[in-house]
Design a protein around this nucleic acid. Structure first.
Lengths: 282, 282
DNA sequence: CGGGGCCGTCTCGCTCAGCGGAACGGGCCC
DNA sequence: GGGCCCGTTCCGCTGAGCGAGACGGCCCCG
């Protein structure tokens, strides 16, 4: 119960994209002691698929996971039958059922359903990218994104993660979310994403203070050069901040005051909508 | 390789919302023989969460799955650590990591990323609900939905399923998708969803023929009284139909010709966009 | 053409991870 | 205070899971 913000659990060492690793122990290829259960193996197998991988062959999965080939094969058959994996030729793909189950996760479904139409409104009013983000561990994770045809080279993704200190949504969550969060964030080193990213805890504290004063958070070219974002917190049924909503626009045409006005108007309506949709806590 | 449309695998007996079932066998509470593996149990546990359940207590999970309490507890601990489940108090929730992994499923990610901005355009041009659907088993599954504030009592859902014979997207997929599909569909009984739903195979065949002739499918009050939908197929990189896109509007203000025009324009652009994004098959 | 390498698949005896009945302690309501 | 249901924990048994290894097909290269 003292777990305030849901954690992302401890990934042992997802993959380094290359060979297993040069462990001195003569034991075959077990990264650590966390894969001795069926579920551990299944986790390794499913997480062998990176965000950009489309499909993997059996041997490739064996290479990435370090699990014995026969085991991967056996488990893959079972996952296939469940629908968590699909197969074309001899390539395995993450299966549709994963998508289906993933959409049932209440923390995203409730918020997203409530926010979605309003994000549409915001997009129509601004023509810019709208993000809905929640806290997960010490990162934001994007639940939803509404945008147009703009071709950014490395765009944000739904279910993608970003650090808290360089995003507007992240700063909004630090400023208005769980009290202990700021401390936890500055306890880690603040990665420099662009030349303008804040890496000094003092400066970050000032920005958070400013955000608390004005009621919204802003980020100028701290995530991507040429773009700024404005974010506002969303309050859930229990009165605590559960998410953040942001507008991201190219700096040359950004109208911060307009975004702030629109966001704060929409924020209250979404909160009301959440309370109706979800009597309990969300 | 002769598996043309990805199947939804065989759910043994998801849940009947009530007691396990009155099996004559004296054996404790094993529904069938499919739960004897760790993965089988995990499947039962995760699928114990229905589309509308927010959280379940441990005992409730035990009741729904028939798995021994100690086993559910142990597996839940492991799922917790992975992040597939989360916990508040003593209630278990489907976890954020499920959402994350689900968003990596390529069959939805690629299509959705390509179609999303165009769906936005369609929504702006019509003000009506836009659906993106693919075939899964003998149903459509919605990958994406763009809509406004309209408060329908039992709205469609992202990742929700619908029969093929009563939806515009379904008929579009029958008409332009895998050749054997029509036969498989009429081999089952066609459920009556509204008074206007087609339940006679002959009539359905006529509608499919009509759709093939004009290049789009239409459905008038066959899914929901007071609404109609128009759908068009989307072609993937290999030239086969992989999805369908639809506009749904209240009959009194629907402008079918306008929708057809917009859809067919957008369809070609999405296909082009898919080919760029995904060199291989999708 | 033949050999070598990599692929996915399958076998089979060992063993330890997983199992689940049972006991426990705490909160709630009658 | 007693009964009930909750989540948690214990512990000895056992069969599900394991993985080294064999196998056959495919492709590339000498």
């Amino acid at each position: 119960m003292s777990l305030i913000y849901p954690s992302s659990s401890s990934l042992p060492a997802p993959d380094a994209d290359g060979e297993p690793q040069p462990v001195a122990i003569a034991y075959p290829a077990e990264p650590d002691g966390s894969a001795n259960s069926v579920l551990g193996k299944v986790r390794l197998i499913l997480e062998a698929f990176g965000p950009d991988d489309e499909s993997l062959g059996l041997s490739e999965i064996v290479r990435r996971t370090g699990v014995a080939k026969a085991s991967v094969h056996r488990l893959a058959q079972e996952l296939l039958q469940w629908g968590l994996l699909e197969r074309r030729g001899s390539e395995y793909w993450l299966g549709m059922r994963l998508f289906e189950i993933g959409q049932r996760v209440p923390r995203q479904r409730i918020l997203r359903d409530a926010a979605r139409p309003f994000m549409e409104d915001l997009y129509q009013a601004t023509g810019e990218t709208i993000h809905l983000a929640v806290l997960d561990g010490l990162e934001v994770i994007y639940l939803e994104k509404v945008s147009g045809h703009g071709q950014v080279s490395r765009p944000s993704r739904i279910a993608g993660r970003m650090p808290l200190h360089c995003t507007a949504t992240g700063k909004a969550l630090i400023a208005f979310g769980p009290g202990a969060l700021f401390g936890d964030v500055v306890a880690t080193s603040l990665a420099r994403v662009t030349p303008r990213t804040i890496t000094a805890p003092k400066l970050l504290a000032q920005e958070i203070q400013q955000a608390r004063k004005v009621g919204y958070a802003i980020e100028r070219e701290q995530t991507r050069v040429g773009y700024l974002s404005v974010a506002i917190p969303l309050t859930g049924a229990t009165g605590t901040v559960v998410a953040a909503l942001s507008v991201t626009a190219p700096t040359f045409r950004a109208d911060v005051n307009k975004y702030v006005g629109l966001l704060s108007m929409v924020s209250r309506r979404i909160t009301k909508s959440i309370m109706v949709a979800d009597g309990g806590r969300s």
